[in-house]
């Protein structure tokens, strides 16, 4: 009963040939176009380098002031502002200022890239059921495939550095904003859309006056999720040469430095909490008009 004992697989030679030919084809592709693709991303790289330098070279009191101001603008909550200041001071005191600034830089850029790609894609998805049927499984794969797996082709193509790191972060972080933009627009009240049609809205007017504003709470939940997931990728991104808080964590793992790992890990947590609270509060403020009550 050999047939039942061992799965009748393709056989070692065939399998090796298949893998070899795929590897070979991709390597060929990489050799041929790698440089061109890298060149395409050059402006992005320059921008990222410039932005990181801007954050790390700026005087620290100024940066803390800017963070506090942003927290105030977003959340309008004194406790959150104070928490922000305390966190950044503590990060500085424990010697993690530069790494933290580098992390903030890549998270910011990743978030903007994700918003820039994710919201338009989500809008397109909400318009077409067919596109939704195609994109949804792709997003599922992007969220579940182990990140190391897609690091391989990215590194083969672009080497190690900031741009491949950014791409890795975005692959992981973009799905929620796409999903929630799509969902938010699809959930917009049918009667309000009917009203927009009945008054003669063009498609553009309907999108800008009705669909996006009414979907905004969901879109904003997507932005919040995207930021959180980008932060979760900081350590993995540091494996392919992204500077920031991930680098010391990685070093701590390989050398069993408990304190170093803990400190940098907590710094990531602090960033996550600040980003989360500020963006959530901002999202809530966007919906102020939804509060009922007839009190005038």
């Amino acid at each position: 009963m050999e047939f039942l004992d061992k799965f009748p697989d393709l056989g070692r030679t065939t399998l090796r040939d298949i893998k070899k030919s795929i590897d070979f084809a991709f390597r060929e592709f990489s050799n041929k176009y790698g440089e061109a693709i890298e060149g395409f991303f050059d402006p992005l790289l320059y921008f990222m380098v410039w932005f990181e330098k801007l954050l790390t070279n700026a005087p620290w009191p100024l940066m803390i002031l800017i963070f506090a101001a942003l927290a105030w603008l977003g959340a309008r909550s004194l406790p959150i502002v104070i928490g922000t200041i305390v966190s950044f001071v503590a990060i500085g005191v424990f010697g993690m200022w530069e790494d933290t600034m580098a992390t903030v830089a890549i998270i910011s850029v990743a978030t903007f890239v994700c918003i820039g790609l994710g919201i338009p894609l989500g809008i397109l998805m909400s318009r077409s059921n067919r596109l939704q049927a195609i994109v949804t499984p792709v997003l599922d794969v992007m969220q579940t495939i182990p990140s190391f797996v897609y690091l391989i082709p990215v590194v083969m193509l672009l080497g190690i550095g900031k741009v491949p790191g950014l791409i890795a972060v975005c692959i992981y972080a973009v799905p929620p904003i796409v999903r929630l933009t799509n969902l938010g627009i699809r959930l917009v009240d049918k009667e309000v859309l009917e009203a927009a049609d009945a008054f003669g809205s063009s498609y553009r007017q309907k999108l800008l006056d009705v669909q996006i504003p009414l979907a905004l709470p969901n879109i904003f939940a997507g932005v919040n999720q995207t930021i959180m997931m980008a932060l979760a990728m900081v350590v993995i991104a540091s494996m392919i040469g992204v500077k920031g808080l991930g680098v010391p964590v990685l070093r701590a793992v390989s050398n069993q430095y408990l304190a170093l790992g803990l400190m940098n890990g907590l710094a990531i947590v602090a960033l996550a909490v600040i980003f989360d609270r500020v963006s959530q509060q901002y999202g809530k403020r966007l919906q102020k008009h939804r509060q009922g009550g007839h009190g005038v």
Partner: peptide, 12 residues
């Protein structure tokens, strides 16, 4: 122009 049963106003 049209008036709707559930008002269909823009909440924002």
């Amino acid at each position: 122009s049209m008036v709707f049963q559930k008002f269909a106003l823009l909440p924002h």
